[in-house]
Structure formats: structure tokens, C-alpha cells
Design a protein around this nucleic acid. Sequence first.
DNA 1: CATCAATACTTGCATCTGCACGTAATCGGC
DNA 2: GCCGATTACGTGCAGATGCAAGTATTGATG
Lengths: 157, 157
Amino acid sequence: MSKRTVYDPTDPAFRLENSPFYLIAHADFRYHQQMDEALQHHGVSKPIYRIMTVLRERQPVSIGTLADVALTKRSTVSRIVDRMVDQGLAATAPNDADSRITDVTLTDAGQRTLDKLTPVVGEQLDRAFAGIAEADMTALLSTLRRISSNLAKADRG
Amino acid sequence: MSKRTVYDPTDPAFRLENSPFYLIAHADFRYHQQMDEALQHHGVSKPIYRIMTVLRERQPVSIGTLADVALTKRSTVSRIVDRMVDQGLAATAPNDADSRITDVTLTDAGQRTLDKLTPVVGEQLDRAFAGIAEADMTALLSTLRRISSNLAKADRG
DNA sequence: CATCAATACTTGCATCTGCACGTAATCGGC
DNA sequence: GCCGATTACGTGCAGATGCAAGTATTGATG
């Protein structure tokens, strides 16, 4: 007989509330809920903030890379960046070496907005992880990485 | 000085790839990617499958409860159920005791579809959790529950 | 250097989602 | 038993997303 874990949905004992991906979705959902509220106070949309967090680390960066890192389709990122340009948060320019590529950078206003938002998000993270031991956080990250890696493998296979 | 963890986005050492919620989103994203492919082969959309997993455990169930458990807005669930009814997967009827409530149930065809899908999803979960110790899974669930609970508290406060 | 394939992005279209509002039904105070 | 408040759901509308197709640019091949 197939000996799976209790997370096996074919098992009659299976319950959604014990299902890892349900709990992952749940944590993700609550986080987005909080983010939405916090960001709206500052007039920034969730997708725009998501792109900004990538731009914080890499700049300039192409639309394609933004899409890969932000887990969003290219066409969607293209439009999000359009909005950011409209709002004066980002600037685009064709890449010097390869003019097919659109280099995206934060404007000064965009950087200021991000700097304003970062501590707000930081406080939410403090609340989210309150009472969780450092070792447990490390284990969480490690397990999540393994799950992502397993699924990425399955993608190619 | 505020002594946060390295997951503090205000810290210059902060990196997206080490951020818990980024990794949560990443795992969620890969899972959805896999699901989409698997479900499309069976002509079932992701939102419909999501609702079905709730109906597996509770039946009949109201639109509102479906929305709460499936982490989706009521109006959206209302329309997803419409589609399920159109496709012959679900049936609706006003609740006997309170006719404001719409009781949703799976039809026989819907149950058969779910039965067909469940082992497919089970195999994906096997792949996703391959090589992860039982104790690590338990820790993962525990930490995720704590995070959700922390954020739910923050919601009310 | 001409040509075909591949890459990077953009846009038209269809779909999905959520908000705000409207309708129907139930509950509570009197 | 009646009337206002609440609850549960459905719908018009606007915004966002993804797919498929199109354009522009680069690379590879001869």
C-alpha cells in the first residue's frame, strides 16, 4: 500500500486545515491583507510594491528579470512599470548594449516612497514573527526552499 | 537600537531571497503553477478546484463559509459556484431554515471529478515534500499557523 | 552581408476579481 | 406583530492579469 503522510488528500483523515499548502496560502493571504491596508495609506498598490522590493536590490533591471523575480508574467510587469512611470516612481530607458531590453530604475521619488514604506512593512514582519524562535524561522526558510526546489524540478521533468 | 532579525527589510543586509514571505509566495507560486497544468488536463479551473476541496469536507455549505475557508471574496465565490453549476459540478438550493443562505453541494459528476483529481494532486504533494523529514513538516505547519494567527490578531488590533 | 531563428518587450482581447450597491430574508426591541 | 438593523447573497462596473499575437532588435549561419 502507498504509505504517504497524513497530508495525503486521498486519505479519509485528510483535513484542509492540516494541509501544508493550505496553510501556506493562509499565511500568504493574511500577509497580503495587512499589506494592502498599509500600502493603501501611502497610495501604493501591492503589485507596485512587489516590483519595488526587487528594484531595491537590483538596479537597473530588465522587465524580464523583474517578471522572474516578482513571480509575475512579463506582460503584467510591463504594465505595472507603465503605472509606476505614470506616477513618477520609476523610469525606463533602452539598455545601452541591447536596445530590446528595457532598463527600469527607481526615480528619487520612487526611492523616497520605498524608504518610507520599508519600516512600515518591517513592523508588520515583527508582528508576524512574534514569539517564533530564531531556530524555527531558520527551519521554516529551509523547508520552504526545499519545497520550491522540489516543485521546480518537477516542472522540468 | 532596534534589534530585529536579519529578515528586517530596513537592514542593508536584507535580501529578498531570505525573506520568509517571499519564500512563502515562491512556494505558493510553484504549487499553483503545477496545479494549473494538472487541472487543465482535466478541464477544471484552479478556483473551482479550490472550492471543491472545501466541499469535500463540508456539505452542504453556504457561499459565505466557502468564501471564508477558501480565502476568496463572497461575490467571487458566488460567481465561481455559478460556473460550477453551469458545468454540472455543483448544485445550489436555498437553506431550509434560512432562505437567505444558499446551500452548495457537489453533484455526482462533481464528486467523480474531485475523486479523479485528488490522487493527481496527491502525487504533486509527494513530489513537493520529497526528502523532508516528518519532524520538519510538523515544524513547518506549526510555524505557519503561528504566523497566520499573529497576523489575524494584528487585523483586529 | 543577407537571412532565418531567437529574444525582449508591448498590446488586443477575454477572463477573473473585488468593491460598491441593491435585493431579499431574518432578527431584535417595543 | 411591526419596523429598523443586520445578514446573505447577487450584479454592474472598473481594474488587473494572462494568453496569444505582433513588432523590434540581436544573434547565428552560410
